[in-house]
Design a protein around this nucleic acid. Structure first.
Length: 584
RNA sequence: GCUGACAUGGCACAGGCGGUAGCGCACUUCAUUGGUAAUGAAGAGGUCACGGGUUCAAGUCCCGUUGUCAGCUCCA
């Protein structure tokens, strides 16, 4: 495909390449806008870029546009594709650009233009009667778009600011062939089957009720999973020299005023009055941790001092942001606070980053890293912020971890490094984070005795590995599509009886497995074996033991593996070896 | 919080123009005692999210509330 660039040059790129894909989708967005303008000329166009999967276009409609309108819009788009319009590119000066957009009464475009310097040259693309101010790139002709589909409709604030008008955003996707579109839509369907909310219900892991929006309930199998993760986490943290504590979920107002949360975080905290004193349910565990630190004097010899806590935290998140286990109002953070000297910062950050990498790699997760800098609403001096931000940067550079920078996205008390994981449809969620904090030790007047015999203020790191255990479980469910590895499976082995004549032998096998610490269940219903296998398979249980006359007589078990099918008959001892090897 | 859509037995769904609810799976009972993804039969389960309104009559139409979903904003 020929791609027309912003500067007027032409490049060659395939749809498989990033450039080709962007141009392809971007052009489809223009075709959408062209169709909209043909059908509803009063509509104003805002912006319409290509995105990770497809494109969107934001419109300001003068009527209620709904998905019922999709059919006629798609029909018009089809016409535009068939007209095989050429995308012409030209550049005008700023004044002329404003003139063109004023003629077309495109007020959003004019607003964008007014923010550009007057000497800026403005790039335009035109296909047929449709003209758009746009930086491109675009493909050369509309009929390359052999298959497209409008996918959904949603509100989106103009320029992403919630104080601005909400526009109507139309999402879509397009491909150079019908087969590719089919394939994509199938993939979407498949991804939906992995949705942790769906699997969580089907597998009996967790539940959410109208009585507590955003407050998940853990069901027996889900809690087992959560506890297994916690066991794993504890083992790692003991190895890494952390000391675990537990602090109350409610503390008084004075503490939150000291920490700064009362001023900077109050709208997200649940508060109540006890004996005429304000109390807040903790949205973070750090202030509790500070109290523990301050119980007694500390020496630099104790540093780095790593205090961990599985903190049950509550945050009044906006109702529209709640999302299964991924975004909740109550969760367990695998928090830890590390107190140290300035010289120890680099090594500590690197150590934590290593730990996070170890855990994510253990699950086969892919992640990306973001560094967030000082936000507008923050506390502390410029000097401290600069030092903290540079410490994080240096550690990431040392580790050769690629990262992107989020300007102004840090916590109010310090900059942070976030580790993001992907869900089944490619949305990313912040999980691990390392946050440097010069503020809290200062606010709490925390100190330690240095090598010089004088008092100093310790540096503090807040960090989580899972992030919230809830969110991490959500990611786990989607990553494994509910087929957890053996060590994490709530039920590891299901024994399926062929007839009830051999129940004694089955109970014997069950006891043997349970003595080895293997989580197993017996399906002794009066059903056929095919039915029970199907049932265990749907429960995604890793190992099934089929036991009937043959097994009872030969003192064996027939083993069926969730992912590999029939493994044949073997003595129980051999099965135990297989399970041990896989890791229980 | 904002915009839009949705809300029917445990689950997944039907219910053109308003005439007081259906199917499949699961569940219970009975029969069947079987060999690697669904044995057969019978039975029980719903004040159609909640609160108002229109109407002789509302699952169905209107308004509100709550919740869910998609996205925006925000965040672990």
């Amino acid at each position: 495909m020929k791609i027309k660039m912003k500067d007027g040059s032409i490049r060659e790129a395939d749809f498989k390449e990033e450039l080709g894909k962007n141009a392809f989708w971007h052009t489809t967005a223009h075709i959408l806008a062209q169709a909209i303008k043909r059908l509803y000329p009063d509509t104003k166009c805002a912006i319409g870029p290509s995105i990770k999967n497809g494109f969107y276009y934001d419109f300001d409609f003068h009527f209620h546009f709904s998905e019922e309108n999709f059919a006629e819009v798609e029909a018009e788009m089809k016409k535009i594709v068939n007209e095989n319009l050429q995308l012409k590119h030209f550049i005008v000066d700023h004044k002329k650009a404003i003139q063109i957009m004023e003629e077309k009464n495109e007020s959003y475009k004019i607003e964008l233009l007014n923010e550009l310097p007057k000497e800026e040259k403005i790039s335009f693309y035109q296909q047929g009667e449709y003209l758009e101010m746009c930086a491109g790139p675009h493909i050369a002709y509309t009929n390359a778009i052999k298959a497209f589909k409008l996918l959904s409709i949603a509100g989106a604030y103009w320029r992403g600011n919630e104080k601005n008008k909400m526009l109507t955003r139309i999402y879509g996707i397009s491909f150079p062939s019908k087969d590719l579109l089919e394939e994509y839509l199938n993939q979407l369907e498949e991804a939906k089957k992995r949705d942790h909310r769906k699997l969580g219900k089907e597998l009996g892991l967790f539940a959410l009720f109208e009585e507590g929006p955003g407050f998940p309930f853990f069901l027996p199998k889900g809690l087992l999973l959560k506890n297994l993760l916690i066991d794993y986490w504890r083992k790692l943290h003991i190895r890494e020299g952390y000391m675990e504590i537990s602090t109350p979920i409610m503390l008084n107002r004075q503490l939150w005023e000291t920490s700064g949360h009362w001023n900077y975080y109050k709208d997200k905290m649940y508060t109540t009055l006890i004996d005429e004193t304000d109390f807040a349910v903790k949205p973070m565990s750090c202030p509790g941790s500070m109290l523990v630190y301050k119980m007694e004097p500390h020496s630099y010899r104790e540093f780095p001092m790593r205090i961990s806590e599985l903190g049950l935290i509550h945050r009044n998140e906006k109702s529209g942001t709640l999302h299964g286990l991924m975004r909740v109002r109550c969760c367990t953070q695998d928090d830890a606070h590390i107190f140290m000297t300035p010289e120890q910062i680099q090594d500590e950050i690197k150590g934590v980053a290593h730990l996070i990498d170890e855990v994510y790699s253990n699950f086969g997760f892919h992640y990306h890293v973001e560094l967030s800098t000082r936000p507008e609403n923050s506390i502390g001096s410029d000097k401290d912020w600069e030092m903290a931000t540079n410490s994080l940067k240096n550690a990431l550079d040392d580790l050769k971890l690629p990262y992107i920078i989020n300007e102004g996205d840090g916590a109010f008390y310090g900059p942070k490094v976030d580790f993001h994981l992907e869900d089944s449809i490619g949305r990313t969620w912040q999980c691990g984070t390392i946050q440097l904090d010069f503020q809290l030790p200062q606010r709490f007047k925390a100190e330690y005795i240095g090598e010089d015999g004088n008092k100093h203020q310790p540096i503090m790191i807040h960090r989580v590995v899972f992030g919230s255990i809830e969110r991490f479980i959500g990611i786990l469910i989607e990553h494994f599509a509910g087929k957890f590895p053996l060590w994490l499976s709530p039920v590891q082995v299901k024994i399926l009886s062929i007839s009830d004549k051999y129940m004694n032998y089955i109970k014997e096998i069950e006891m043997t497995l349970k003595k080895e610490g293997i989580r197993c269940e017996v399906d002794e219903r009066a059903e056929k074996i095919g039915y029970k296998i199907r049932s265990a398979q749907l429960e995604k249980i890793p190992y099934m033991l089929i036991i009937g006359e043959k097994e009872a007589k030969t003192s064996c078990v027939s083993v069926r593996k969730r992912d590999d099918g029939d493994l044949g008959s073997m003595p129980i001892k051999q099965l135990l070896e297989i399970l041990q090897k896989e890791g229980i």
